[in-house]
Design a protein around this nucleic acid. Sequence first.
DNA 1: AATGAATGAGACTTCATTCAT
DNA 2: CATGAATGAAGTCTCATTCAT
Lengths: 199, 199, 199, 199
Amino acid sequence: MTDKQARIIEAAVQMFAEKGYAATSTSEIAKRAGVAEGTIFRHYRTKKELLMAIAAPAVVKLLAPFLLREFRDVLQAEYASFEQFLRAVVANRISFLDRNISLFRIVVQELPFHPDLQRQFRDIVLSQVLERIGGLFDRFKAMGQLPDWPNGAIVRLCVSAVMGYAVARMLNRSSPSWDDERERETTIAFVLKGLTPSS
Amino acid sequence: MTDKQARIIEAAVQMFAEKGYAATSTSEIAKRAGVAEGTIFRHYRTKKELLMAIAAPAVVKLLAPFLLREFRDVLQAEYASFEQFLRAVVANRISFLDRNISLFRIVVQELPFHPDLQRQFRDIVLSQVLERIGGLFDRFKAMGQLPDWPNGAIVRLCVSAVMGYAVARMLNRSSPSWDDERERETTIAFVLKGLTPSS
Amino acid sequence: MTDKQARIIEAAVQMFAEKGYAATSTSEIAKRAGVAEGTIFRHYRTKKELLMAIAAPAVVKLLAPFLLREFRDVLQAEYASFEQFLRAVVANRISFLDRNISLFRIVVQELPFHPDLQRQFRDIVLSQVLERIGGLFDRFKAMGQLPDWPNGAIVRLCVSAVMGYAVARMLNRSSPSWDDERERETTIAFVLKGLTPSS
Amino acid sequence: MTDKQARIIEAAVQMFAEKGYAATSTSEIAKRAGVAEGTIFRHYRTKKELLMAIAAPAVVKLLAPFLLREFRDVLQAEYASFEQFLRAVVANRISFLDRNISLFRIVVQELPFHPDLQRQFRDIVLSQVLERIGGLFDRFKAMGQLPDWPNGAIVRLCVSAVMGYAVARMLNRSSPSWDDERERETTIAFVLKGLTPSS
DNA sequence: AATGAATGAGACTTCATTCAT
DNA sequence: CATGAATGAAGTCTCATTCAT
């Protein structure tokens, strides 16, 4: 990937996150990237292709830790308790979001409008994640650390709590009243208690 | 509001929800509404004004039950337990979303891009909601039905769980494997357990 | 002429003078006149017709004193000297302009773009004026008060000097350095001296 | 300046002069220039900017001879008499108008509607012209070739006479009864006589 | 590989005019 | 007579994309 190409991607990521894909013009991207308009189309045949060059890998990166080959074998053994697992994953994903908030925004904003992105997200990725995480959760269930709910539901409840935390964090970033440490602990405590099997 | 005006709003709501505000052209809206394009601009001076005529009231409607004057006085007394309250609110908002999913999508999609909408959402509405709900939650805390967490955090945890349920429901609407009754009960059980004060 | 009609004309005169005919919209006129848009078209079938209802009489009014039936017979006798005549006409036309500057601006602005106005101005009016004024000037020439130049040229020289004075006056209306009395006297002195027959 | 850009300017000059700025559409200009409409807006962001790209330099060109650095020093010495000076300037400006009548028309037509043009005309240019010409006229006054009138008034009287001649010339261009040589001489004779100091 | 002038389809918007009320 | 909602043609301007250099 040439230097200009990198600058184009970087500029596009910023602008798409800022104004949305549809409201961003290729000429703005070119200007911010410091390249000629034509140069964009030398590397990406269409504006959509540029979006996909950003969004498709972003989907993968967002779910990266769950896709590692070692996830099933190695990590599974590593985490003795669900709490350990949850803390590890939350820490890892939050730190990722801090560094890649633009990618996250782009994926979330554009997912509803691009069936191909949805397909990727759903079929390819989500199935892998659920399958792998399913094994892990089954083990935690057997250990009496998770209730006997469908794995999909448990994942959803975890994800929504963490996403809620992430969004609130983003919105309150500059507010002095946001005690990040406490909010994160509250969220984790909530999830753990909510997922405690009833005796 | 004339007949044509209603048709314009209806068409715009559908298209904005479907393709997003920026990707929807006024000529498409006119065509779907069965009016001349000029007619749109007789009623709404700009496309943005048309969006606001839809989104601003939608923000209010989405939060309507929390804004009722009676909310504080009447409902507060009515709900003996937090569970009753949670069930009532969830049922009410989910049924609202079923009937107004387009409005919901528009607000969620456009909120990040329109500071005026954000302001409305934040300052005017959010403050009212939090203030009122705060009083209610304080009472539940005194009754030992909620943990001693900040009201903002409790609201966030409830909202994220319910929104996660709503989104999953929307995505899986046509899937036969989605057992709505069970998912909703699971979600409520999760929230209730997660918010049980530690003895 | 109904009340509304008068208000329409008045509003149109103001706006045409202010922004120009082409740049003024009928809806603006309607708004300023305090009538509905449709009302304008009940009285004037087209926007152009509204312009003509203003401009055509304005052309006549601008040249009014030269069109009076009495001009040839009565006035001719009245003015013993060219200076008397010049002073009378200048005073009369300047006071008219003060009261009807908008009409004047409209005629001047639109004359180049409307052949029908030009035709009116040229054929109908200009010929009458020149013919009548020609007789007067011939008499002054015979009296040795005007040089033996073509009447058209003399009229042109008088008109351009007076118009130059009128325009400068308009532009400097608010300037304190504009000594109107002196400027007018200078202009008249200039014309009179310029038109003194060479011994 | 690319070839297309030149064609755009040329077409715009013709059409603005012919129909007026407000009544000329950018699509007409594009058609006459033989370019796509979008091309106009690549070079001039708005229609107004296109007008200014024409009118602003035109204002300068119209007053060019009075702005030359050499005007004060060189020409002042060169012209022994006011008559020489007047004849030179008239010949120069008339020949300029013959070649640039469209520019002249545009400036005159649009000046009343564009405060920025007026400002340029007034502040920047007029002050320079008056200042320079003032020095020249003071010298002619000292030589007893001009009356003791304010320089502004003298300039106005000269300009209005010449402009009146130019306009009449333009209107009668095709008329066989227009004897240009005689009209010009009459005009100059009128100005010279009108500006003769009273003994 | 890179440029940026050129394109033309289509975006939003304005406007003179009509017509049912 | 008066209204003002409705129209659709036309206006200005934007944009993704192409192509000669």
